[in-house]
C-alpha cells in the first residue's frame, strides 16, 4: 500500500500528513510533486493543507492548473480514494470533484483552534473507524472555510448523506455558536456522491498522537488504510468505476 501526498508549491501540511501515515500508522507514503503526471503506484491520494501558490487569486485556484490535477481527476473517476484537508478541500472544490465553494470566515479572521465535529456518516472509506454520531475534537486553521453552495446542491448533500462532518458542541449538537466560520448547515466536511472523495476543513493530521493532545484525527487515517486493506475489491466494485469502465 502506498499513500500519495501531493506537494504543490506552498503546501505546508504535506510532511505532517506523511508523518502520520508513515510514522504513526506505519504505512508507506510518497510525496508527489505537482508536476508529476502519473499515480501508477499510488493507492490513495491526500491533498494536504497549506497555501498552494500562496492562495493568490483564490484558495486552490492556481493549484487547479497543476499537471497532477488531470491525473487526480482520472484517479477519482476510477474510484480511487482522495482525501482533501483544508487547502486540499478548497482545491477539490476548485477542480469540481466536490460541489460548492468557500467564502471568507464570517469574522474575517484566520482561525486556529480546536473544534468539535460530529461524524454524520460513519460508513465512508474515511470514517469507517468512527461511530456514527461520534464527536471528534479536531483543530482548524483557515481563513476561508465558510462553506457555501446553492440550495439544490445542499438538499442533495443532505439527502445523500454526503455531509460527513458537522461542527457541533461537545455533546454533538450542531449550533450556531459552535460553527467557527459560518459554513452552511455547519458543514465541516463533505464527500462526493460516489463516496470516494472527501474534503474537510479540520486537520486530522494535527491530532493523531497523544503527545499533541488528541488522537481523534488518527481515526480518519486508519479508516482510509482500513478501506484499502480489508476490502481491496471496494475500489474496483465502486459504482463510478463501473460507469467509467
Amino acid at each position: 500500500m502506498n499513500i500519495g501526498v501531493i506537494v504543490f508549491p506552498g503546501s505546508n501540511c504535506d510532511r505532517d500528513c506523511a508523518h502520520v501515515v508513515s510514522d504513526i500508522c506505519g504505512r508507506q507514503t510518497s510525496l508527489i510533486w505537482h508536476q508529476e503526471t502519473s499515480l501508477a503506484t499510488i493507492d490513495a491520494v491526500i491533498l494536504p493543507g497549506g497555501f498552494s501558490y500562496g492562495d493568490y487569486l483564490r484558495s486552490g485556484a492556481i493549484a487547479r492548473c497543476s499537471p497532477i490535477i488531470e491525473v487526480i481527476i482520472q484517479f477519482a473517476q476510477n474510484g480511487g480514494l482522495v482525501l482533501g484537508i483544508c487547502n486540499g478541500f478548497q482545491i477539490l472544490l476548485e477542480i469540481g470533484l466536490l460541489p460548492g465553494a468557500m467564502l471568507r470566515n464570517q469574522d474575517l479572521h484566520f482561525i486556529c483552534e480546536d473544534v468539535y465535529v460530529k461524524v454524520e456518516n460513519a460508513s465512508t472509506p474515511f470514517t469507517n473507524r468512527c461511530e456514527s454520531g461520534q464527536v471528534l475534537k479536531l483543530p482548524i486553521a483557515h481563513a476561508e472555510g465558510n462553506y457555501y453552495t446553492d440550495p439544490v446542491t445542499l438538499s442533495a448533500l443532505q439527502a445523500n448523506a454526503q455531509i460527513v462532518f458537522r461542527y457541533c458542541d461537545k455533546d454533538g449538537y450542531p449550533t450556531q455558536t459552535t460553527n467557527p466560520n459560518g459554513s452552511l448547515d455547519n458543514i465541516a466536511g463533505i464527500q462526493n456522491a460516489a463516496g470516494n472523495v472527501l474534503g474537510l476543513m479540520p486537520h486530522p493530521e494535527r491530532c493523531a498522537e497523544a503527545l499533541l493532545g488528541s488522537e481523534d484525527g488518527q481515526k480518519i487515517f486508519l479508516s482510509l488504510i482500513n478501506s484499502l486493506t480489508t476490502d481491496s475489491s471496494s475500489i474496483a466494485q465502486h459504482p463510478i468505476a463501473h460507469e467509467t469502465s
Binding site: 505546508n12 493543507g49 484566520f110 494535527r206
Partner: peptide
C-alpha cells in the same frame, strides 16, 4: 487564535 500555532505537528 489568528496564528497557525499547530502546523508542523
Amino acid at each position: 487564535r489568528q496564528y497557525d500555532h499547530m502546523v508542523g505537528t
